[in-house]
Simulated assay, not measured.
Amino acid sequence: MSDLVRGTVLLGVPRLISSLGGDPLVHLTEHGIDPASAGNYDRFVRYSSAAAVIGDAALVLDCPDFGLRLARLQNTQILGPGAVIVRNAETVSAALSSICRYVHTVAPADTIEVSRLGDLAVVSFDTDLRRAADRKQMVERALGTTLAAFKIMLGDDFVPIRITFQHRQIGPEDSYRRMFGCPVKFDSELNALHLPAAALSHPIRGRDAAALALAEGYFSGVTPDVALVDHVRRLIRRMLVVGHASLRMVAEALSLHPRVVQRRLAEEGTTFERILDDIRREIAWELSASDLPISRIAAALGYSEQSSYARACRRWHGESPRQLRQRAQLHASERGMHSRSDYVQGAEPSNN
């Protein structure tokens, strides 16, 4: 399972930490997250690291209802294109069906399920996080976001029948009452929002079918005017920023089965392995012009061993990583390019 999510998972986190007297830079960097990624849709972060920032902030800043407060700040913005589905699906049931299907593209560790028990509907949430403190905060944040989504679909006056959590109560009773406005039970079987089953058939008013199609097209990962190979190249480049890019991870981000990705790439005359190798070669050239240690360059390309990078370097360029560095830095110096920015795009000269 991919551990990568968009930086919007941390939307509002720096602001909340600051309001509690903490230093967002410290909390983020302690868990290896670039502060510029927090709230940034175009950046990827590790979900486990983002959850650790939230879990640790709750403990260090003595704010046990951190997840609930964050849910208020994030509202449905955290859903990204999912918020468009919530606003524009035909019915509440249709919206939930789409969200359940696509949630892994937003948060790969999370699952959402909808079940009916007679006249009762249960929307349950679970996450595959290991640290208990992080898990509790993320669960409470998620159910707060779920309630916000239902208020969009059913109106601001919607109140659940009850909310249930698997964990014991961690925050002040008043925080749960203000957030949910209904009975909240702990040590329960499910992390869930309970509501009348009849609400699932409620039509969503003011819906825009075109907006819905665009959102679902985004989640499907393929748009008519962009080839799959371009989507794959873009995702691989972004995933390599945190040192991981695999066929499975890219397929998950595209909401496609890995075999489907491979088949469609073959139709376009390439393979996932070839694209990954090409991008690694491009990035190796770009980073060799910087002052990064060769070991760091190897890690940035997703190689667990520096020797693997050395073999690839000789295959790509016919030279060692050190020789490539000398050539790349000379080329950059001649062109007056001394940028240390991440993955600076630069033309790669021939080594002939």
Rank of each mutant, 00 (worst) to 15 (best):
V5Y: 03
G7C: 06
T8F: 02
G12R: 08
V13P: 08
L20F: 05
P24A: 09
I33D: 12
Y41H: 12
F44P: 00
V45L: 10
L61E: 13
L61Y: 13
C63R: 06
C63Q: 14
L70E: 09
L70T: 11
A71F: 09
T76A: 11
T76W: 03
A83D: 14
A89K: 05
E90A: 10
E90S: 04
V92C: 06
R101P: 00
Y102L: 07
T105E: 02
V106T: 04
P108C: 01
T111C: 01
I112W: 06
S115Q: 12
L117T: 01
A121G: 03
R130D: 11
K136C: 14
Q137P: 11
E140G: 05
R141Y: 12
T145I: 15
A148N: 08
A149G: 09
D156T: 05
P160F: 01
I161N: 14
Q169F: 06
I170P: 03
K185P: 02
D187E: 15
N191L: 04
H194L: 12
L195W: 04
A197G: 14
A198T: 13
A198N: 14
S201E: 15
G206N: 08
V229T: 06
R237A: 10
S246D: 07
S246V: 02
L247V: 02
R248T: 09
V250Q: 04
V261Q: 05
V261K: 11
A266L: 09
R281A: 15
E286A: 15
L292I: 01
P293I: 12
S304M: 02
L330K: 13
G336D: 12
Q345F: 08
S350N: 05
